Amino acid sequence: MAGLLVNIDVPDRAAAERFYVEAFGLTPLRRFGNNGVELAGWPVRLYLLQKAEGTTGAGADPRRYARHWCPVHLDVVVDDIDAALAQATAAGATVETGIRTDSWGRIVTLADPFGHGICLVQFLNRGYDEIATPA
C-alpha cells in the first residue's frame, strides 16, 4: 500500500473549500480546474471534489447533500475540543450532540454544510489505550 487519500464530494467546491479552511485551518495546495482542490494540514491530504446533487455516486445511489448517515466519516483529533468546536461552528458546521466525555477522551459530533458527518475528538489520559485490548 502506498498511501491514503481522503476525497469528499461536495456540491460547491468554493464553498466547501472556505468551510474546511475556516473550520480546520487547512491550506489549499492545488486546484484541479474549478471542480477540485487539494487541502493540506492533516496527516493525509483532503480532496474536495465538486459533484452535482443527483448525479450517480457509488453504485446506483444518487448523490445527496442533505444530512445523511454514512458508516465512513471524519474523526478530527484536536488539542482543545471547546476551541475547535467554536471554530467549526463559526465556519458553518452543525452540532449534532453535546460534548461527551469518556475515559479515553472527549467527542462531539457535527455535520459539515454538505451533510457529511464529522467528529471532533480530544484524547485524554492514554487515549484509546484506556479501552484497548490486544488483537
Rank of each mutant, 00 (worst) to 15 (best):
M1R: 05
G3P: 02
L4W: 01
L4Y: 04
V6D: 02
N7R: 09
D9M: 12
D9Q: 08
V10Q: 00
V10E: 00
P11H: 13
D12F: 06
A15F: 02
A16H: 04
R18E: 10
F19E: 00
F19T: 01
E22C: 08
E22P: 02
E22Y: 04
A23I: 07
F24M: 03
G25Q: 10
L26V: 02
L26N: 09
T27I: 08
L29M: 05
R31V: 04
F32W: 04
F32Q: 09
N34I: 15
E38R: 02
E38G: 01
E38A: 15
L39Y: 06
L39T: 07
A40R: 13
A40T: 07
P43F: 06
R45Q: 06
L46M: 09
Y47S: 00
L49D: 05
A52I: 03
A52K: 07
A52T: 10
T55V: 13
T55A: 12
T55E: 13
T56Y: 02
A60T: 10
P62T: 13
P62D: 03
R63Q: 09
Y65C: 14
Y65H: 15
Y65V: 15
Y65N: 03
R67Q: 05
W69N: 10
C70H: 09
C70F: 11
P71S: 08
H73W: 13
H73I: 08
H73F: 11
H73P: 09
D75S: 11
D75F: 15
V76S: 01
V76D: 00
V76F: 01
V76Y: 01
V77R: 05
V78P: 01
V78A: 02
D79M: 01
D80L: 05
D80N: 12
D80G: 08
D82F: 03
D82V: 15
A83H: 09
A84F: 14
L85Y: 05
A86W: 04
Q87L: 15
A88P: 01
A88K: 00
A90Q: 08
A91T: 11
A91I: 15
A91W: 02
A91M: 03
A93M: 07
A93C: 04
T94A: 08
T94P: 00
E96N: 15
E96Y: 13
E96I: 03
E96S: 12
T97D: 06
I99N: 14
I99D: 09
I99S: 12
I99G: 03
R100I: 04
T101D: 10
T101H: 03
T101R: 05
D102S: 12
D102V: 04
S103H: 13
S103V: 14
G105V: 15
G105K: 08
R106E: 06
I107R: 06
I107Q: 06
T109Y: 12
T109G: 03
L110Y: 14
A111F: 15
D112P: 05
D112K: 12
D112H: 07
P113N: 11
F114R: 07
G115P: 06
G115V: 07
H116P: 02
H116S: 12
G117V: 08
C119Y: 05
L120Q: 04
L120A: 04
V121E: 04
Q122H: 13
N125I: 01
R126Q: 13
R126E: 12
G127T: 14
G127Q: 11
Y128C: 04
Y128P: 10
D129H: 13
D129S: 13
D129P: 00
E130D: 09
I131D: 07
A132L: 14
T133R: 06
T133S: 08
T133H: 14
A135V: 11
